[in-house]
């Protein structure tokens, strides 16, 4: 480094302190950049929903609903919920990686809004949910799915989907803060998610399940979410359906957002 270069570096004053929202948007920009630099992630994100939608529709469709097309009418809103719930894992893994690399030490020593890095993760989540959701919906439409709720129903359903993703996001953020190996974040997260997702009404109506399981399935927040999604997309949702579907995400946020902040600022 030459002397003139050193001078170019010095005496740089801080510009006006940016707002918390502006901090969060910068982290959102980082999340978006990841799609550009880590396209492998995009591959997972695109292939998994395509695979699940096609497999379940054609393997189960005939047996469960008479035809794949009939089944899709029931299954598509559910697979959207399943995808969003599983997609939340990316943020947690990314967080765990960043913490392991010491990147968050730099962020923590900056004078910024402490929740901004997490808000940025949520921006990445929303992008992922939007991509995966759009893919599933497109495949569904191609295979004959018809949302009777129309454009309004679909938009409302996607908003609910983001709320569900937002709630789930906190689960993996907390796991990411607690667990130092990204793979363990994924496996432990899935260990908790698999029963929730599969013991739900996403794939089948609970009518034929044993009593004890049916009771669980009916109160499972994932089922409540799937039911509300079906209602919104078919134009038959009651306000109550949507309200109970929002309880899960709301409770998760109320409990885990402060936990996140506490874990992050703990030193």
């Amino acid at each position: 480094m030459t002397d003139t270069q050193t001078h170019a570096l010095l005496g740089i004053q801080r510009p006006r302190r940016p707002s918390g929202v502006s901090n969060a948007l910068v982290f959102g920009w980082r999340a978006a950049l990841k799609f550009k630099y880590v396209p492998e992630q995009l591959f997972d994100l695109v292939m998994t929903p395509i695979m699940f939608t096609l497999l379940f529709t054609f393997v189960f469709g005939g047996a469960l609903a008479g035809s794949p097309k009939e089944y899709l009418q029931f299954f598509l809103p559910g697979i959207l919920v399943q995808t969003v719930v599983f997609n939340a894992v990316y943020s947690g893994m990314g967080l765990s990686t960043d913490l392991g690399k010491g990147l968050f030490d730099r962020f923590r020593s900056l004078p910024i809004w402490p929740l901004a890095p997490f808000a940025g993760l949520m921006v990445g989540d929303v992008l992922r949910h939007l991509i995966a959701g759009a893919i599933i919906l497109s495949i569904g439409l191609m295979l004959g799915y018809r949302p009777e709720g129309g454009v309004f129903g679909v938009v409302a359903a996607f908003l609910l989907l983001f709320a569900i993703g937002f709630g789930m996001g906190w689960v993996f953020i907390v796991l990411g803060l607690l667990i130092s190996t990204p793979m363990t974040v994924m496996t432990s997260g899935f260990a908790f998610l698999f029963p929730l997702v599969f013991a739900s009404n996403i794939m089948v109506e609970p009518a034929t399940m044993p009593e004890w399981l049916r009771v669980f399935v009916e109160v499972n927040p994932v089922s409540l979410a799937a039911t509300a999604m079906r209602g919104l997309m078919s134009g038959a949702a009651s306000l109550q359906d949507v309200a109970v579907a929002l309880i899960g995400p709301a409770v998760l946020t109320i409990l885990l957002a402060p936990t996140t902040l506490w874990l992050y600022l703990r030193r």
Binding site: R14, P15, R16, R17, P18, S22, N23, V26, W29, R30, L33, K34, Y37, V38, D98, K101, G102, L103, F104, D105, R106, F107, S109, L110, I112, A116
Partner: peptide, 29 residues
């Protein structure tokens, strides 16, 4: 203050320039 830790705290996936732009924006540029 500024702290440069014992182990690099950089985003390995991003370019060098993007790493610095990220921080510059966080500081308010």
């Amino acid at each position: 203050i500024a702290m440069t830790g014992q182990f690099a705290s950089l985003d390995e996936d991003l370019t060098g320039r993007d790493n610095l732009v990220l921080l510059a924006r966080l500081w308010g540029f």
